[in-house]
């Protein structure tokens, strides 16, 4: 099971995410992981990805500390020990 930590900024829109203990998800890729997250927290995928399924420009996903390579197709592989962080980029004012 991959372990997922989501930025606390998402708690405002998905109160059930708090408290922010890591979420355990069975997924072979980032795309599968976001699909599984959306099943558990309906609507969450639309916050992370646009209509075409690509990662939104100011959202970052890290797998084991490294930013994913495929922001369009989310094909980066996960394994049972993967630690995934979903962060927001610093932008705006």
């Amino acid at each position: 099971m991959a372990s997922v930590a989501l930025t606390k900024h998402l708690h405002r829109f998905f109160p059930s995410l708090a408290p922010s203990a890591p979420i355990e998800i069975q997924a072979g890729s980032v795309a599968e992981l976001i699909g599984a997250l959306d099943a558990r927290f309906p609507g969450l995928a639309g916050y992370l990805c646009d209509d075409s399924g690509s990662l939104r420009p100011h959202v970052n996903v890290f797998v084991d500390g490294r930013p994913i390579r495929d922001r369009l197709g989310l094909t980066d592989a996960l394994d049972a020990a993967s630690a995934v962080h979903v962060m927001q980029a610093l932008s705006g004012g």
Partner: peptide, 25 residues
């Protein structure tokens, strides 16, 4: 800025809100 465009509605003039699915291409 980060999470995209959302659409919400309120039936009590803003006291409570419900997010509804935004238009999707």
């Amino acid at each position: 800025g980060h999470w995209g465009c959302k659409l919400s509605r309120s039936r009590d003039r803003g006291r409570t809100w419900e997010e509804v699915a935004a238009p999707k291409y």
